[in-house]
């Protein structure tokens, strides 16, 4: 009996030791690992491409627009077709955002444009944007150089919670809004997209001018988004997509309770073998034992 009994206690005890040491190993990782975000060079290479002169850029932009966009937006980007809005005066930043997110050129009019891989490379996008901007002044400019070193993420977090979380959720996982619209996830956006989106307010998103969100505040928000929304600090382990308690509930039920059920199944039906031996010493069924001492 002794050995069996010992094993019964020892095996699960070993399990707990293994679990605990795994826990310390996993939790031992540096707590607030600040996600390093070295800006990729491509984000800054938006300045005029190589040797092409401004005129040549406008020329290619014009050509690309006529081929890919004009049948919806009109040859002068004025929305004269009635299918698509007027682009004149929106500014190059807006055009760049809509092209880099892959929202344009649109495949199926009507629905909210989906995020797709962009149809053009960065140079072409810039050329198209320049040409559209050349038609009429104003609107959202190309993003300036965004120096984030001095930006304050705490300020950014607070502003993000106040202005952006109502739609994009607090973790930036994105969410469905009413009437079939959805706020896209912000996990993969670049600093320029955030700038352009905030300043232009695509579709259902409100437009935040410099009076609502000052340039410094915008830099704070951008720093928070590209650092902490993109790479959430998750010292606790697998982060379950940042969608919150529903995912946690499923894990808790299926893995937590499920794991315990397996454990119950494992130990639950095991008494018989142990009891054979124990029976050897005590004479007679336990019922008699209980009766005699009662």
């Amino acid at each position: 009996m002794g050995l069996r009994l010992l094993r019964k206690i020892l095996v699960p005890f070993a399990a707990i030791v293994v679990a605990a040491s795994m826990a310390t190993l996993l939790m031992g990782r540096s707590h607030v690992a600040s996600p390093t975000s070295t800006p990729s060079p491509s984000q800054f290479s938006l300045t005029a491409a190589g040797s092409a002169s401004r005129k040549a850029q406008l020329q290619t932009g014009y050509q690309l627009f006529q081929v890919h966009c004009s049948f919806c937006h009109g040859t002068r980007a004025d929305g004269s077709t009635g299918i698509a809005p007027n682009l004149q005066g929106l500014g190059p930043g807006v055009v760049q955002l809509w092209l880099r997110t892959g929202w344009m050129p649109l495949k199926t009019p009507g629905a909210q444009p989906d995020n797709k891989p962009p149809a053009f490379n960065d140079t072409q996008i810039r050329e198209i944007a320049l040409w559209v901007a050349s038609l009429k002044k104003g609107g959202v400019p190309f993003p300036p150089k965004l120096h984030l070193n001095k930006a304050n993420v705490a300020q950014g977090f607070s502003l993000f919670t106040l202005n952006c979380a109502p739609c994009h959720t607090i973790t930036g996982a994105g969410d469905a809004l009413a009437d079939g619209y959805h706020a896209p996830p912000l996990k993969a956006v670049t600093r320029h997209e955030v700038y352009e989106a905030v300043r232009s307010g695509p579709q259902n998103m409100p437009q935040f001018g410099p009076k609502n969100i000052t340039p410094a505040q915008l830099r704070d928000i951008i720093k928070y988004v590209v650092k902490y929304i993109k790479h959430p600090v998750s010292p606790g382990g697998i982060s379950l997509g940042g969608v919150g308690p529903v995912a946690e509930g499923f894990v808790g039920l299926f893995i937590g309770v499920g794991g315990c059920l397996l454990a119950a199944y494992w130990v639950g039906d095991r008494t018989e073998r142990g009891s054979e031996e124990d029976q050897g010493s005590g004479e007679g069924p336990a019922g008699e034992r209980e009766a005699s001492h009662a």
Partner: peptide, 18 residues
């Protein structure tokens, strides 16, 4: 043993999933 097992499942989950 079962007490240990339930604790182990909880500890494992807590160590691995945030």
């Amino acid at each position: 043993g079962f007490l240990f097992l339930v604790t182990a499942v909880t500890a494992l989950l807590a160590a691995v999933v945030q």
